[in-house]
């Protein structure tokens, strides 16, 4: 019984990490097709916003987290206005610009805040089952990841804004001729993506060492999850992340973590080869 719970806990933990890594990128890369190499830095902004506001104004953690997310949204909006909007339609060039942004952000944080921030304590407590003990916050993260994804699915698939956003990104000219202010739709969608990355940063900030490079811990996981999720990222994310985390946790369990990572990367290669439309293609049957 405990063994089973352990397996679920480990699997859920890895799954929520992949989901939360990917969630902002699913909007910015999955939908908007911007290869955002600065995704990690958006997460960094969220984490720093949270920790700095918690320390500076002595805010309770949830409010500090909200603060961190708001800062990331503002940051995303500014970036969109200054740089990103000039890159729509040339996705490959976005590689260089976002790489540049990522260099600027992480190094600016180093200059401004020094090499590391004093950490926060992980909220909630822990509980025991037999010989094992578990962090309650980790279990909260698993549930939160699913709720967030559900909300996102509703936003983009079930609301009129969602339809508008998907239509605009798919066929900007037509949307524009129908009277849609496409530039606003782009801005808002990008800001949502940035805000989601900010949420990831805010959520993981109390569990990790807060350094300027904190976001880089998420970047590879984010890209592989979004890519294997396929063309409709909000449908494909959960199956993709489940599959990848199942591979990683089981291989890590039987061999070691390094082999787990190698297996993870290999399965990404094989998924792309044999499921070119990703997991969402498998579900929506549009092969």
């Amino acid at each position: 019984m405990i063994m089973l719970f352990n397996i679920v806990y480990q699997f859920g933990d890895a799954l929520s990490f992949l989901l939360l890594s990917a969630i902002g990128l699913a909007v910015i890369f999955g939908m908007m097709k911007i290869i955002n190499l600065a995704h990690g830095e958006f997460i960094t902004v969220g984490a720093y916003g949270t920790v700095v506001s918690a320390k500076a104004f002595n805010l309770p953690l949830p409010i500090a987290m909200a603060f961190g997310v708001i800062i990331t949204i503002i940051f995303g909006l500014i970036l969109e206005k200054l740089i990103i909007r000039h890159l729509y339609g040339r996705p490959l060039d976005s590689v260089v610009a976002t790489w540049g942004i990522s260099l600027i952000v992480s190094q600016s944080f180093l200059v401004i805040f020094g090499p590391s921030l004093e950490g926060l304590q992980t909220p909630l407590g822990n509980f025991k089952l037999g010989d094992y003990s578990y962090s309650e916050y980790r279990i909260f993260l698993i549930f939160f990841a699913f709720i967030l994804l559900g909300l996102l699915y509703i936003l983009f698939m079930k609301t009129s804004f969602g339809t508008l956003a998907r239509a605009t990104i798919e066929k900007p000219e037509i949307a524009s001729s129908m009277g849609v202010n496409i530039s606003n739709v782009y801005s808002v969608t990008f800001a949502i993506g940035a805000g989601l990355a900010g949420i990831t940063g805010a959520l993981y900030a109390p569990t990790m060492t807060v350094v300027p490079s904190i976001g880089q811990a998420f970047i590879v996981s984010a890209f592989i999850t979004v890519v294997t999720a396929g063309a409709s990222p909000f449908i494909g994310l959960i199956p993709a992340a489940s599959f990848l985390s199942a591979v990683q946790t089981s291989v890590t369990f039987y061999y070691k973590a390094t082999i787990g990572i190698i297996a993870l990367l290999f399965s990404v290669i094989l998924i792309i080869r044999f499921l070119p439309k990703g997991f969402s293609g498998l579900i929506t049957k549009e092969k």
Binding site: I83, L87, D93, V96, A97, G100, S102, L103, I104, V111
Partner: peptide, 11 residues
């Protein structure tokens, strides 16, 4: 930072 700025501005 300077390197990043150059890349952003050039693209």
């Amino acid at each position: 930072i300077a390197m990043g700025l150059i890349l952003v501005i050039s693209t």
